[in-house]
Nucleic acid binder design. Structure first.
Lengths: 204, 204
DNA sequence: CACGTTCTGATGCACTTGCATCGTATCGCA
DNA sequence: TGCGATACGATGCAAGTGCATCAGAACGTG
């Protein structure tokens, strides 16, 4: 058995390079050569890792999706000291909205992929699954809040989750478009969540 | 004075072709040759109309933006028989959200441009202006509704307008991503508007 | 230390891209 | 009807694309 390489690690490294390039100058600016240069590997290495360019882009999308989902799940799972459900809801949505400066790259990439999803079956599938998972998560949080009497009982958790997700996505877009600062977007999101709470001062 | 051509008409024709191609297979699939073929003109004609490809894309974006803004404005201006402010608000937002099947192409194009705005100064400027105008419009409608006692007095029209716009955009994205049908998205939007009304049955 | 397998990266190739060029067709006007 | 300005569209061109190829380096194993 000759020289062995950690392909997973390399794939991730290349995916990061793809994201950097997409965030910098859009999706059509991503060429195999540029990716190789950005990831500091040879073009041959890229081609060995991914059969085609489309495979590479798809992997990059999954990479980002996974990153976002995981972060949201961890935020919840890591809550040893039981937090207020309302706080949890606020923080989780704030993270999903990719509002902070550090998430800007991911937001760029996400938007680029959403824009191209209609032209690619597989891409659309990944996005669909990710959204479904996030929706499940938010709806669960809302029901949890209702159990703890923090969220109004009359609300339909499924509907409110859809609305919250759409609002979060819309705000992400508006921040990227320079229409809002992350801070004002966050405030708008919080204002909307407050309406759902029995006691708005419960905010996190 | 020799052969004269209606350049504006041709520009619009080419812009339509650009939109069709973007909607069909994304922005990077738009080449001058494809555009020429789609618009059923020669490549030379395209090059005569637009100095560069970027100019062409920019014009296409303005074309769509203008189309959307105009439709919203007309909806309001054409209201001879005074409609309920709440109805006006609902209908206007529903149109802006580009939810119906007929607007799907425009939604595609809008999304493609938003995704590429971070990579293009001029593109971002056009989007910024369009959003500002739409925000002004929605805020005005809310204040109008407050004047007619249809919308709750305590609301901050500016804030609510931002939220509504973000929600509309988010829903547009979700519909394009196949997460919602236009009908369910519309219902979600309406549910949110209802919360702002003094008498929710006023819906249009 | 060789052997054989795996990985590498440079190069080639067919193709497409945006843009420039230029002879020709087309029209308004004298 | 002929002139001259204008628009046309085919073609050329250099650059860049994704992907295939392949000689050789790098490495674990006998």
């Amino acid at each position: 058995m000759p020289r062995q390489v950690d392909y997973e690690e390399r794939r991730r490294r290349i995916a990061e390079a793809v994201c950097t390039l997409i965030a910098r100058s859009g999706m059509e600016a991503v060429s195999l050569r540029d990716v190789a240069a950005q990831a500091d590997v040879s073009m041959g290495a890229v081609q060995r890792c991914f059969r085609t360019k489309e495979d590479m882009l798809l992997f990059a999308l999954k990479h980002v999706s996974q990153h976002v989902s995981e972060r949201a799940n961890q935020r919840i799972a890591a809550t040893h000291t039981p937090q207020a459900a309302a706080t949890l809801l606020s923080h989780t949505l704030a993270e999903l909205a990719l509002l902070d400066e550090a998430s800007k790259t991911q937001a760029h990439v996400w938007l680029a992929f959403v824009a191209h999803a209609p032209a690619s079956e597989k891409l659309a599938a990944v996005l669909h699954d990710t959204y479904a998972e996030l929706h499940r998560l938010i709806a669960w949080l809302i029901r949890y809040g209702q159990d703890t009497q923090e969220v109004l009982q009359g609300l339909d958790a499924e509907h409110e989750a859809h609305t919250l997700l759409a609002l979060a996505d819309g705000l992400t877009v508006h921040v990227l478009a320079g229409q809002h600062t992350p801070a004002t977007a966050l405030a708008l999101l919080q204002r909307h969540i407050d309406v759902l709470l029995t006691n708005p001062s419960d905010r996190g």
